[in-house]
Amino acid sequence: MTPAPPSRTLCADGIRLTTISTGAAVAGLRLEDSEGGWTDVVLGHADRRSYRHGGYLGAVIGRVGNRIDRGRFELDGATHQVSVDERGNALHGGVEGFDLREWELVDAAADHVTWGLVSPAGDQGFPGEVRVQVRYRLSPGEVRLDYSATTTAPTPLNLTHHAYFNLDGESSGTIREHRLQVEADTFIPTRPDQIPTGEVREVAGTAFDLRQPTPLAAPLSAADEQVRIAGGIDHHFVVRGEGMRRHATLVGGSGRRLEVWSDRPGVQVYTGDHFDGTITGISGSAYHREAGVALETQGPPDAINQPGFPSPVLRPGETFRSWTVWRVGTSDPI
């Protein structure tokens, strides 16, 4: 029998984080309640060997998170074709993205663990060798993700993290009654194949106006063309401001609260439309539609083909660095 991937668990007051080598994925984020019980608030596979078969659950995504139109782009006068895996487009790094790789344990201590990966030149069609690391650092009420990467040739890079959150517990059902607030005045609409149109649209007057805490049931039930295209929300929100700032706040019916902070340009909100009962979760229950919501801090999709979007290109001699923080606690129950 194939062994389960190696794992590391970090513990702080009221919080336990487990990461594994496959995809450098978060395979568990457990929070303690006032009665001393523990609840896992991220979706994950019951059998950790299943992380090797895809689904993105809890994984680090690369080289390029989100979508590239037809998997094709031009960089410094050369045209590159990368592997395509979704309706003729490249999603989350292509057929064999970083989520499916076995990452190397770089270092570990009581409060942190670092995983590293070497992506060779030509990997999935991308130019240059890329060396990437992600460090998870745990403290009471907070998980910090530190990313770094270098390259030997110019290449697009858009690292992100694909944890799905259900703050009422990973087996508790839908996230429709979770309240979500996103610090964004604009979002990026897409074509029917979910490639950006190039427009950056005001959220005002749309189902994507999440500037105030909003039960997810409201946008998910809206008669909106963009909701219909995605089967829910699967869109990039352009977070106002620059530098380290709050991107989103999520509150479950239990009163558990998550704040997502990052220095990235925006956050892709995805409400898990694809879950169809075929994934068995951590507690042994099947995941169905809207079982969790992903809040993926990142640059905008297809930015390598969209001159109006921030450039995702990393060049030799540069070091990509980025930070995302998950702050967890409690609020008043909904």
Rank of each mutant, 00 (worst) to 15 (best):
M1P: 08
A4F: 00
A4W: 01
R8S: 12
T9Q: 13
D13Q: 05
D33F: 03
G36M: 02
W38I: 10
R49F: 10
H53F: 07
L57Y: 01
I61K: 01
R72F: 06
F73H: 08
L75G: 06
V84T: 13
G88K: 10
A90Q: 09
G93V: 03
G94S: 14
G97F: 00
G97H: 03
D99W: 09
E104C: 04
D107S: 04
D107W: 09
V113E: 00
G116A: 09
L117Q: 08
E129D: 09
Q133K: 13
V134D: 02
R137P: 09
P140N: 04
P140G: 07
R144S: 05
D146M: 14
S148Y: 10
T151G: 11
N158A: 08
H162Q: 15
H162G: 13
L167K: 05
I175V: 13
E177W: 11
R179W: 06
L180H: 10
V182A: 14
E183I: 09
D185H: 10
P189S: 02
R191Q: 12
P196R: 11
T197I: 06
G198N: 10
V200W: 11
R201Y: 03
V203Q: 01
V203I: 06
V203T: 15
G205T: 08
T206Q: 01
A207Q: 01
A207F: 03
F208E: 05
L216S: 08
L220D: 00
S221M: 05
I233V: 13
H235T: 11
V238F: 12
V239C: 02
G241F: 12
E242M: 01
G243W: 08
R245Q: 04
R246N: 02
T249E: 15
R256W: 04
E259V: 02
S262F: 15
Y270R: 01
D276R: 13
I279S: 04
I282K: 04
S283E: 15
A286Y: 12
Y287F: 14
H288R: 10
H288Y: 11
G292P: 04
V293P: 09
A294H: 07
A294D: 07
A303C: 03
P307K: 15
P307C: 14
P310G: 03
V313R: 11
L314D: 06
P316I: 08
P316V: 01
P316L: 12
G317E: 06
G317T: 07
V325G: 01
R327Q: 14
S331I: 03
S331W: 00
